[in-house]
Design a binder for these strands. Structure first.
Lengths: 209, 209
DNA sequence: GACTGTGAAGCCATTCACAGCT
DNA sequence: AGCTGTGAATGGCTTCACAGTC
């Protein structure tokens, strides 16, 4: 499922703009131009304006944007004016790291449960939350009203776990496993492929020096 | 720095194709068509053929591709026919998880050193490798001939650490910090922004249901 | 008959350039 | 004068459709 006519690249940049604006707020800056945002995040000022234009007119000609106002609009657009409970499946190194990652909670993504198939891991605590067996998936998703599932299991079980998440009512999957997942068209899927990122670097390293 | 005229999207897909072919090899499959690869990774068969066409003619008309031959070509193209020693800066949850992540080593990315500023962490062991102080950066990069640096420090110190990596001779940076990094044009940079990925999902969740 | 390789067409995102507002 | 908002132009990736080969 894709959301209407907004380019994904635009959504990604909005997220980055919003973080840059957060920084400006912390620094006490009140007003900003598209040119300054552009410089701060490494794109062109026309790009910044075009991205914003998909959603409305947030600035003042001749003046620029009010930092706090623009920030508010972006957070709303990104759906970050609310909490998003999430569940992590796979309490290995990566899953555990993500469960404890402050950056998620800071943006409203609260990890409400973390599950694993391994009996050894079940019952261990990561900060506040306890690793639970896979059987708890459906119950936790329903009681915590979770719509985002984060998959950090090995490739072999990734599809199976994903199917279960979707059966249990999850609407969006963030996949960290190195496996191409099949999901029905009404479920959102994003892949964070750690090795692929390094491989793009190694490909490009061939061309320098 | 960008590598010549190959679209980045193509490089990413080549990496994914190569993993799919690896699977086919494991399954004992000898021959494959662009249509089968396309089905396996979720793109069109024309896309598969176009991507491969940037680098040569690897198939046989009317027949398809020999799995092992194509796999070999892709690994060579991606620069994965060699080892890539890497260094991780930041031994927090995420850095530690990445240091131990089997997927990297499986593709030739060997984490040769992991550094941290925190005196408490220095000396602790992650599997085989020991967390060392930042001061060891230059020495380790030179003696291990490292060209890839992985940044997993908090946003506040990310730029500083990146500058040091580049000073020490690193040619490519994989950035996990939520900060836009400035690097000179002869240094490669890729960002893996964990929150941004969730935010793209939350944006799109607004449009369903 | 099957499937690759590829020029041409189509599509979509980015950049340009300027009108419009303050 | 300064900066936004936007139609038009550009550039680049993807899809189409078919000629070429086995």
């Amino acid at each position: 499922m894709k959301a209407y006519k907004i380019p994904e690249a635009t959504v990604i940049r909005l997220s980055i703009y919003s973080r840059y604006l957060q920084q400006l707020i912390d620094d006490g800056v009140k007003s900003v131009s598209s040119d300054e945002i552009a410089g701060g995040v490494g794109v062109s000022s026309a790009q910044v304006r075009k991205d914003l234009a998909y959603f409305g007119e947030f600035g003042t000609r001749g003046v620029g944007y009010k930092v706090d106002v623009l920030y508010g609009h972006l957070m709303k657009i990104l759906g970050l004016d609310r909490k998003w409970p999430a569940i992590i499946v796979g309490a290995g190194k990566l899953g555990s790291a993500l469960a404890l990652y402050q950056g998620f909670a800071a943006r409203g993504f609260n990890v409400e449960a973390i599950l694993d198939a391994d009996a050894e891991k079940i019952g261990t605590k990561l900060d506040e939350i306890e690793v639970e067996p896979l059987e708890m998936m459906s119950q936790r998703i329903k009681e915590k009203n979770i719509s985002i599932g984060i998959v950090t299991v090995p490739a072999a079980t990734a599809q199976e776990v994903t199917d279960k998440l979707i059966d249990s009512g999850v609407k969006a999957i963030l996949n960290f496993s190195p496996r191409v997942l099949k999901v029905p068209p009404n479920v959102l899927l994003r892949n964070v492929d750690l090795s692929v990122n390094l491989e793009v670097l190694s490909f490009n390293l061939n061309f320098i020096k």
